[in-house]
Amino acid sequence: MTARAVAEGVLDPELPVLTLAELGVLREVIESDDRVVVTITPTYSGCPAIEEMRRDLRTALTEAGYRDVEVRTVLAPAWTTDWISESGRRKLLEHGIAPPARVGPRPAGPVPLNLVPPPARVPCPRCGSAETTELSRFSATACKALRRCESCREPFEHVKEL
């Protein structure tokens, strides 16, 4: 197995339905002789999972026979939820987590203020209803918001747009 294939198969510690590649945090895998340099990027500045990711990558590559493994961090370009791949979005949905909408590049000028939660169109991942309400912008991990479906009444998590 190539080092890239091994690294791409490592799962995200906080959303273990996705691989790091699908989450979009795996930036580069460079293999030369016995040496592998993997580059990843954090999601949020304070995301505590990054150390787990580094360790999981080292472990997976070491177990695959690579003896000299280095995991580097890059900050730029900053990760956004647009880096989550199509297959990543599909897997989130299959596991009851609403994927983020695509946001595109940040427009120039001051960031607009939102005095009410924006009318996000986040369909329920269970029943597909568009009638859902944000319960809290912040949830069990930095990257998720908590919502409730007004049709099936189930609460669900939403990977909020960043």
Partner: peptide, 24 residues
């Protein structure tokens, strides 16, 4: 400074959430 620039680029979106939360 490349590090300040990168830290700021990440922070902008986080801070926008914080500000919205406090405003609401």
């Amino acid at each position: 400074d490349p590090v300040l620039s990168a830290v700021a680029a990440k922070g902008v979106k986080e801070l926008a959430y914080h500000r919205d939360h406090a405003a609401q």
